[in-house]
Simulated scan of single mutants.
Amino acid sequence: MERETLKPSVAVIGAGPAGLMAAEAAAAAGAVVTIYDHMPSPARKLLMAGKSGLNVTHTAPDFAARYNCPSLARMVETFGPAEVRAWMAGLGQTTFEGSTGRVFPHAMKASPLLRAWLARLDAVGVTLHRRARWTGWDGPALTFADGTRIHPEATVLALGGASWRRLGSDGAWADLPDLAPLVAPFAPSNVGLRIDWSPHMRRHFGAALKNVGLIVGGTTYRGEIVLSAKGLEGGGLYPHTPALRAGAPLALDLKPDLTEATIRDRLAPLAKRSVKDRLRRALGLGPAQIALLQEFARPLPKDLAPLIKRLPVPHAGLRPLDEAISTAGGLRWDALDPSLMLTSRPGTFAVGEMLDWEAPTGGWLITACLATGRHAGRAAAAWAANRVTTD
């Protein structure tokens, strides 16, 4: 075979959304692409996300700015919400916008999208090797646990963060000698809060509190939280994750639509009734909300309005890393060039949750994984093509 007829080869390590998109982009650019994943089936975390509806993106007008990461924002501006929806439509998966701006596939699960995506990759010649655990480098060669050694012209690392180990993102790559010096420590993001409850709270575990104001510092977000044996969980907490991780205190506004004055006015006519009866009749507080007041503010004062508007909630920090929806930390941006190539290892690119960024909930995580995968996949194919031409 003549050298000029050879196609450049790109290896993608990891078969989550970022890795699959990198493979698609590299193949579309003319590379021969092989994906290696250590799990028996690809994109397990994506499938898990699909169990709650698969929130793929969001229609917020300042979508890219929410990442607070200029390098990432530039990639998302090129492949953002509109492009994600069009890409999904190309796979036969139409989408709709929910009342809060979140975007979901009409199928409300990930499996149809993944099946169509894998079929598309197979049709363009992308090969997927399962149960292939990458172990690092031996000189220029990529090595695997079964002894396999490969020499692709370019490599895209898409190994994920360090949460949900059972789904494949174990973060073990961060300990490799070539990568460890480049990594900002992993930390949990979009995760529950640990609270050491007294025994009387057990009967309320599983209770959901809707439309609660969560106050950290001078910022309040409204959302839903769930009481659990471990503490508090739910999307209402997630926007506060960075501040809570730093040890900031949390307070709850149990009636965010009412002022203190209104609360006092409603409680006053029922002054002779029991506290529980007053809170239930005048304000519509449920058993779990009343239990929270008794848990954190006993003995209850006569004027309950300030506590209802700002109930301090002592906590013991975030739940462990492996319980987090996503992670902060990862490969530092100063270790990468604008194409997402490692400056210390030319021809090797990194994508998705391997990178040091923190996603808000609501579709930002998946969109950024797709955007970085597309960006690096194209760059890897160009690098590989140049290697084939010049070698």
Results as ranks from 00 to 15, higher is better:
144 F>S: 09
93 Q>F: 10
105 P>F: 06
93 Q>T: 06
83 E>K: 13
105 P>S: 04
104 F>K: 06
167 L>P: 04
191 V>R: 06
100 T>V: 01
193 L>E: 01
112 P>I: 02
127 T>R: 14
210 K>P: 00
108 M>Q: 14
114 L>H: 04
200 H>K: 07
208 A>M: 03
180 A>F: 07
134 W>C: 06
86 A>L: 13
111 S>M: 12
153 E>Y: 01
93 Q>N: 14
161 G>H: 03
113 L>G: 03
119 A>L: 14
116 A>N: 14
154 A>H: 01
84 V>D: 01
117 W>D: 09
100 T>A: 15
128 L>M: 12
92 G>R: 01
173 W>K: 06
97 E>F: 00
170 D>G: 07
191 V>S: 09
180 A>V: 04
212 V>E: 01
199 P>V: 01
171 G>N: 05
148 T>R: 09
192 G>D: 06
145 A>N: 09
168 G>N: 07
176 L>G: 06
174 A>V: 09
105 P>T: 02
123 A>W: 02
167 L>Y: 03
106 H>L: 15
162 A>T: 10
82 A>W: 00
151 H>Q: 13
89 A>N: 10
134 W>L: 07
113 L>C: 08
141 A>M: 13
162 A>F: 00
209 L>S: 02
132 A>N: 08
200 H>I: 06
170 D>Q: 04
180 A>P: 10
161 G>S: 14
102 R>T: 00
99 S>Q: 13
188 P>H: 08
173 W>S: 05
152 P>L: 10
121 L>A: 11
118 L>M: 15
175 D>A: 14
184 A>E: 13
107 A>F: 08
110 A>S: 12
146 D>R: 03
120 R>G: 04
156 V>M: 05
175 D>E: 15
109 K>H: 11
100 T>L: 09
159 L>H: 10
184 A>W: 00
117 W>C: 05
83 E>F: 02
127 T>P: 02
102 R>K: 12
163 S>Y: 03
91 L>T: 10
206 G>T: 06
106 H>Y: 11
132 A>L: 11
91 L>A: 10
172 A>E: 15
94 T>M: 15
97 E>I: 11
121 L>S: 12
145 A>Q: 12
122 D>W: 10
205 F>I: 08
106 H>T: 15
83 E>V: 04
124 V>H: 02
180 A>C: 06
180 A>T: 07
138 D>M: 07
102 R>W: 00
108 M>L: 14
160 G>S: 08
196 D>A: 14
107 A>Y: 01
85 R>V: 07
172 A>W: 02
124 V>E: 12
196 D>N: 11
155 T>P: 08
113 L>R: 00
86 A>G: 13
160 G>A: 05
123 A>H: 09
100 T>S: 15
98 G>C: 01
104 F>G: 00
157 L>Q: 01
151 H>G: 02
167 L>E: 11
201 M>P: 12
105 P>K: 03
205 F>N: 10
84 V>P: 01
87 W>I: 05
103 V>I: 13
134 W>G: 05
86 A>C: 11
142 L>I: 11
101 G>P: 03
108 M>E: 13
